[in-house]
Nucleic acid binder design. Structure first.
Lengths: 233, 233, 233, 233
DNA sequence: GATGAATGAGGGTTCATTCAT
DNA sequence: TATGAATGAACCCTCATTCAT
C-alpha cells in the first residue's frame, strides 16, 4: 500500500510556507541587506533599521532568523569568508611547473585579497575585532589560515621532489604569501589605495615575489631544470 | 609696530588666557584623554563622556577645540602616527654591517607594528577607514609610507656600495618589510593572535626574512665580505 | 427540511468541526495555557507566544476565541475565581458546634486565600485593577462578596438559635473574615511573606480570631452551652 | 582674615545650577510625573516616554536622576510610603482614654489606607510585587509593619495599666488593625468600591471594631472605669 | 478553520551635541 | 571662556496582532 498522505513534517517536499527562520530565500535576502550595510558602514555604525530597509524585510523577521545583531554579522562574515576563499587554492592541486604554479597561485591570491569587495569585508572584520575578537580569529582561522596550510602542503611536496630546500616550512609559507602581497595589502586596507591594484601591478609584484622566494629556497636541481626548460623553449 | 587696540579679545595675545580653542596645553590634554579612550575602546564604543573624564576637561571645551567626535579622532590619529613611527628608522642612519643592520631594523619595526597598542590603533583606523577614508590614507602616507622611503634610501646606499643588486628598489623595500612581518601582522590585526609576538618569535621571523632578502638581492661582493667576516670571527 | 448542499463548510453542522471560536474543548485548552502563564508571570510579562506554546494552539486560534490579550485574561480570571471559591463555604452548610464550625471554616478560608497560587492570582487582578476596574470588581463580587453573603446567612442562623447577638450582621461578617486573616493577607499580597503561612500559623490566627469574635458576639446561652460541653468532655 | 573667594566646590551656597542629578526641584518634578503615570497605569504599562511627557523633562534627564525605570519606581514608592504613613501614629503617643484613643487612631488609619490615592499606590506596589518582590516587602516593612509595632507598644502600655489582658500582643495588634478596616480594604483594592469610604462608614466600622476588640481584651478594671466615666458624663 | 511567519510600533536606554549659566 | 546639565534622536530588541497559506 502506498503512503498517500505523507506526514508533512517529515516529508515537506511541497512548496508550502517554510518554517520560521528556515526560508533560505529570505535568509539570503537578509544576509544580502546586511552585507550592503555592514560592509558599507562597519559593525557599530550599521543599524538594524538600515538593514531592515536594505533587506526589505521587517525588523521582527530579522530577529527570527538571527538571534541579534552580532549573530547576523557573524553569519554574514562566515558567508563572505566562504565566498572569498572558495576556489583560491585549486591551482595548487595540480603540481605543474613550480615557478609557473606559484605565480598563478600568487596572482589569484593577491587579486582576490586586494579586490575592493574583499578589502572592505576585511576592514569590517578588523574594525569589529576589538569588540568581537573571536570573530576575527575565526575569520582568520577558516580563511587565511586554511590557505596557509594548503601552501605548506604544496611546499612540502616541492621539497620532496627536491625542488626546494626549506628549514622552516611554516615560516616560508608565510613569507611566500607576504611576498605576493608586498605593499598591496596594507595600502588597500588603510585605503591609501582607493582602487584595487591592476592586473599588471599584481603580476609585477607576484613575479618578483616568486623570484625572491625561489632564489632563497630553490635547489640546484630546480635551477638546472629551469635552465633546461628555457633552452628547449 | 605696537598693537594699540584695547579690545580685550586681543589682549590675550600677550601671555594672558589663550583664545578659545587655541591653548596648546589644553589641546594636548584633550588628545591625551582621547588617546586612552579611543585606543582602549575603538571609535564607536568610545564615548565623549569617557574622554571628558579621562582628559579632565568639560564637554564644551572639547567642542571648542574639535568640531565633533570624528575630528577629535582624526587629530588623535595624526598624533599617534607621529608617536608610533618616531625613532623607528634611526637604526638605518648609521650604515654598519648590512645583515646586522637589516636585522636590527627589522626587529624594531616588527616589534613596534605588532605591539598591542599599535595594533589596536591600526585596527581603529582600519575600522574607520570606510567612513573616513582620508584618515586611513593620511595615516599610511605619513607613517608606513615615510618609513618605506627610508628603507628605499637605505637599500639604494647598499646598492651603491655594491652589496645589493636590485632592479625595482621600491618593490624590494616592500618585500623587505613584509618579510619582517611574515604572518605576524595579519594574525595580530585579525586578533587571531591575542597577544603580541614574543621577542624570540620576532627574531626568528626577521632573521629568516633578512636571509631570504639577502639571498635574493645580495651581490657576490656581499657574500665574499660576509664569508671573510665570519672567518675572522 | 434537509440540507442538501454539498458545500463542505456546512457539513460541519453535523457533529463535525465546531464553528470558529465555538469549540469548548479548545477554549478550555487555551484558558488552561493562559492560566499557567498569566499566574506565573503576571499580565504584562506574559506573552501571547508563551500562552500559545503552553496551550498547544496557534496564535490565530487564540485570536478567534478571544478578541485580544486583555479579554483572554478576563476570561481566565472569571474561571479562576470559580475554582478558588468552589467548596469554600460547604462547611457552613451543616450547622454543628458553633465555635468548631467557625474555626473549621476560618481555617479553610484563610488557607485558601493565602495560598501561593491564589495570592498570585489576586495580585494579578489587583495589578490590573487600574487598567480594567470592572475585572477586579467582578472578581470581588462573585468571589469574596458571595462568600460574605454565606457567612452572613450562617451568622443569622446562629442568632436565631440564640447563640450570637449581633446588631450589624453585615459588618460582623466582615469582621469575622478579617479576624481569620489577621496580618496574613496583607503580608502575603505585598510579598512581605514570600511563602504561604503554615497550617500552625493559620490555626493560631483563626483560633484566636474566633475567640475574639465569640467574646464580642456570643450570648450567655452560647457560653453556658460551651461550658456544659466542656464539662461532659 | 576673611575667606573672600570661597572654593565654590566646598561652599556652594550660591544659587548656581545644581550638579547633575542633584537638583531637588527637578527630581521632584520627575517623581511627580512618575507618580501620575505609574499610579495610573501600573509599573509595566507605564512607559518612560509617558513619564517624560508628564514630567516635562527629557528622557536623558530622567536617566541622570534615576538609574533605570525600576529605580525610579522604587524612589517613587519610597516617597509615597513616607507620605502615607507620616503622622498616622501620633495619636498613639499621648495615652488618653483607651477607647477614645483607639477609635481616633483607627479612624485615621482606616481613612488613610482606603483613600483613593493610597489605594492606587498600594495597587501599583501589589501589581509590581511579582516582578520586584523586595519592593513590596520593603514597602510593607517600612509602612504597615512599622505601624504595627507602634500599635503593639500602645497595647503593651494599656496592658501595664491593667486595662487590657492579651496573651498574644502581636496577633492582637493585627486583629485591631483588621477590625478597623473590616471589609473596606479588600473592597477598595479590588476596585469593587470605586470611591473611598465616607467618614460615616469609617466611623461605623471603626467604632464597632474597637468595641469587639475591647470586649475581647478589656479587663474588669477597664470596664469599671468606663462605667464610672459614663456616669459622671 | 487553523496556522504561524511576518509585521512594525513601541519598549527601555545611551550619548553626541548644545547652550544657559 | 569654560562648564556640564539637559536634550532627543537613534540605538537594539520584543511582542501583540494580522493575514497569506
Amino acid at each position: 500500500m502506498v503512503e498517500t498522505t505523507a506526514d508533512s513534517d517529515l516529508l515537506d517536499l511541497r512548496k508550502g510556507r517554510p518554517a520560521a527562520g528556515q526560508d533560505p530565500v529570505k535568509r539570503a535576502q537578509i544576509i544580502e541587506g546586511a552585507r550592503r550595510v555592514f560592509i558599507d558602514k562597519g559593525f557599530e555604525a550599521a543599524s538594524m533599521n538600515d538593514i531592515t530597509r536594505e533587506a526589505g524585510v521587517s525588523k521582527g523577521t530579522i530577529y527570527v532568523y538571527f538571534e541579534n545583531k552580532e549573530e547576523l554579522f557573524e553569519a554574514l562574515i562566515e558567508e563572505e569568508r566562504g565566498t572569498i576563499f572558495k576556489n583560491m587554492y585549486e591551482v595548487l592541486d595540480h603540481f605543474d611547473d613550480l615557478r609557473h604554479t606559484l605565480v598563478r597561485f600568487g596572482m589569484g591570491l593577491s587579486a582576490k585579497i586586494t579586490s575592493a569587495k574583499v578589502i572592505q569585508a576585511q576592514r569590517t572584520v578588523v574594525g569589529a575585532a576589538d569588540r568581537i575578537p573571536e570573530l576575527g580569529a575565526r575569520f582568520y582561522e577558516r580563511g587565511p589560515k586554511r590557505g596557509h596550510d594548503k601552501v605548506m602542503a604544496f611546499l612540502n611536496e616541492a621539497i620532496e621532489r627536491g625542488l626546494l630546500k626549506i628549514d622552516d616550512v611554516d615560516l616560508a609559507a608565510y613569507q611566500f604569501t607576504e611576498l605576493c602581497l608586498a605593499g598591496l595589502f596594507r595600502q588597500c586596507i588603510f585605503s591609501y589605495r582607493t582602487k584595487a591594484p591592476t592586473q599588471a601591478e599584481i603580476e609585477r609584484v607576484v613575479t618578483s615575489g616568486v623570484d625572491v622566494f625561489l632564489k632563497a629556497y630553490g635547489t640546484a636541481k630546480f635551477l638546472a631544470e629551469e635552465r633546461a626548460h628555457a633552452e628547449t623553449a
